[in-house]
């Protein structure tokens, strides 16, 4: 397998000239009925409501063809356990890996909670800044997308993301990440993770609209974002976020 990849890579370098010609025709019908101008999407996450069931992770992988192995995630859930000795233990909730469901004696726990993570759809996205060919960009409605027909697989964006939200798709060999389920939200559906969340820990909506669950979430909670010092201006905000979360 490895050798075949090696060979095919070499051959493909040689054949790059012919590939150029393949780019000439690309006709796609214009999307109807959806106007991105009226929207600007964001997500709210209520730490106090997450039960760490992992349904969001499963649904995301199913909806978006994310590889099933536990190294590729568009969204994942972290479990934090802050122990009496002051030590903090974090695991990724994944049913496949035993370590992730480590049992702690309740006596040793000061506090504990789950934190769902996903691409923060930064308003000032470092990944977009560094992409050499402009294959990742911010849409008019505020979502960061990857053009998988133009991504060259240099992985600079993966290095630049402070949140570990990107991975290199093992089959496509291009960068991949959460799109807020762009194909769903543009049809008026909720992102798959929000749809299946049993405890409403995730709230999706328009950041500009106040008459919406996301608007209510923003009025009723003290909010925080991840790594604010990096000035990435995330559009995913958290309520009840603990200082231990990074």
């Amino acid at each position: 397998m490895e050798r075949r990849r090696f060979l095919s890579k070499f051959l493909s370098i040689a054949a790059s000239a012919t590939v150029v010609s393949g780019f000439f025709k690309r006709a796609v019908a214009s999307p109807d009925g959806y106007d991105p101008k009226g929207h600007y999407y964001g997500m709210g996450i209520q730490i106090d409501k997450c039960i760490g069931c992992g349904k969001c992770v499963e649904a995301c992988k199913e909806e978006n063809n994310v590889p099933k192995e536990p190294f590729f995630f568009r969204t994942w859930v972290e479990r934090y356990v802050i122990k009496k000795e002051g030590e903090t233990s974090v695991q990724n909730i994944d049913m496949r890996i035993e370590r992730s469901n480590e049992v702690f004696s309740e006596k040793d726990i000061v506090r504990s909670f789950f934190v769902p993570k996903l691409c923060n759809q930064c308003d000032n996205p470092p990944c977009v800044q560094v992409c050499p060919v402009g294959a990742t960009f911010k849409t008019e409605d505020g979502v960061i997308l990857v053009d998988d027909e133009r991504c060259i697989g240099c992985r600079y964006c993966i290095q630049a993301c402070p949140y570990g939200a990107r991975y290199l798709h093992p089959e496509k060999e291009t960068a991949d990440k959460c799109t807020f389920c762009y194909h769903r939200i543009t049809k008026g559906l909720l992102p798959a993770c929000v749809e299946v969340c049993p405890s409403q820990a995730r709230i999706f909506g328009d950041v500009k609209s106040s008459a919406s669950p996301l608007g209510r979430f923003k009025r009723m909670n003290k909010l925080h974002v991840l790594k604010p010092s990096l000035n990435t201006e995330p559009k995913v905000s958290y309520s009840g976020l603990d200082g231990e979360v990074r």
Partner: peptide, 12 residues
């Protein structure tokens, strides 16, 4: 890209 992304099949 936006068009391709929007054409992605819905499962849920």
């Amino acid at each position: 890209t936006v068009e391709r992304e929007m054409a992605h099949p819905v499962r849920y």
